[in-house]
């Protein structure tokens, strides 16, 4: 079987298209690269969904934590504390079994026990809490002068938030948020190891990598392939986030602009 045939058979295997059975013998390099890449589609799906939807909740949570009212502040603080204080792996397990129990009470919760929705919800809440904390930190360090200038110009309410507070917050938070995005993509590999079933062996990249490592008893091929894919994804994230960063900073003189730089120590999550 040529490599092109393998790609045609397995490129979308993780989504349920193409060959139904996984390879059982030989395990050529081409098969491993194709299937692990096919699994990568799940990682990208989870990462993108969680990142885009989590962004909005993160903004809300950050504003909540910075709010004067107790009723807004306390729930936001607790949400951030609970999610950031416990392991994502345990959150996945807890959510999966909780959804499983809820499924008994109403068929409405049926789709939540599959990875595509259930795990996406967990990742959405997870990244919202982590980014919420980042955005909150940025909100706290908005220069006083900017806000006073906005007041002097007569900006109030929504306009002040939309034109002054929010863009400044994003600008300050962006380097840390880029790190959060990278670690979110890394975290997506936990999904199929934490209860959520990979129906008909449609799993993510790590699922296939560990499948090959188990079958061939040789970890030195599939895991480096996986690492290669993830480094590629990381580079893409840095490129996209860097472009957004440049746009956020485009009004600043070039010597003041903050370049996207991975700061040691300030990056770990989960």
């Amino acid at each position: 079987m040529s490599c092109w045939e393998t790609i045609a058979d397995y490129a979308f295997r993780s989504l349920g298209f193409g060959e139904r059975l996984l390879p059982r013998s030989e395990f050529t390099l081409c098969q491993q690269v194709t299937l692990i890449g096919s699994g990568m589609l799940w990682n990208i799906y989870f990462g993108l969904i969680a990142l885009v939807s989590g962004f909005f909740l993160a903004t809300a949570v950050a504003l909540g934590k910075a709010a004067q009212s107790r009723w807004l502040r306390k729930p936001s603080e607790w949400f951030i504390f609970v999610v950031r204080g416990s392991p994502l792996f345990i959150q996945f397990f807890f959510a999966y079994f909780a959804f499983l129990s809820l499924k008994g009470t109403s068929p409405l919760f049926d789709p939540f026990t599959s990875a595509w929705l259930g795990a996406a919800v967990v990742l959405f809440l997870n990244t919202a809490a982590y980014s919420g904390e980042i955005f909150y930190g940025a909100l706290q360090s908005i220069p006083k002068g900017d806000v006073e200038a906005a007041d002097a110009y007569g900006f109030t309410g929504w306009m002040k938030f939309r034109k002054i507070t929010w863009p400044t917050m994003l600008r300050l938070a962006w380097p840390a948020y880029t790190n959060e995005a990278i670690f979110l993509f890394h975290a997506t590999t936990l999904v199929f190891f934490s209860g959520f079933p990979a129906r008909q062996q449609r799993g993510d990249a790590l699922y296939y990598a560990s499948y090959f490592a188990d079958k061939t008893f040789n970890p030195f091929v599939p895991y480096p392939i996986l690492a290669g894919y993830f480094i590629l994804v990381t580079l893409c994230i840095i490129a996209v986030m860097g472009a957004i960063n440049r746009r956020l900073n485009r009004h600043l003189p070039s010597n003041v602009r903050t370049r996207l730089r991975m700061r040691p120590g300030a990056m770990l999550a989960r």
């Binding site: 890394h186 790590l206 008893f217 970890p219 895991y223 993830f230 480094i231």
Partner: peptide, 21 residues
């Protein structure tokens, strides 16, 4: 650089077999 660029769980799964072998 390598350990930071790749999901830690992949490293866990890798090293357990690799170290043993």
């Amino acid at each position: 650089a390598v350990v930071r660029g790749v999901p830690d769980i992949a490293f866990f799964l890798f090293f357990v077999i690799a170290l043993d072998q």
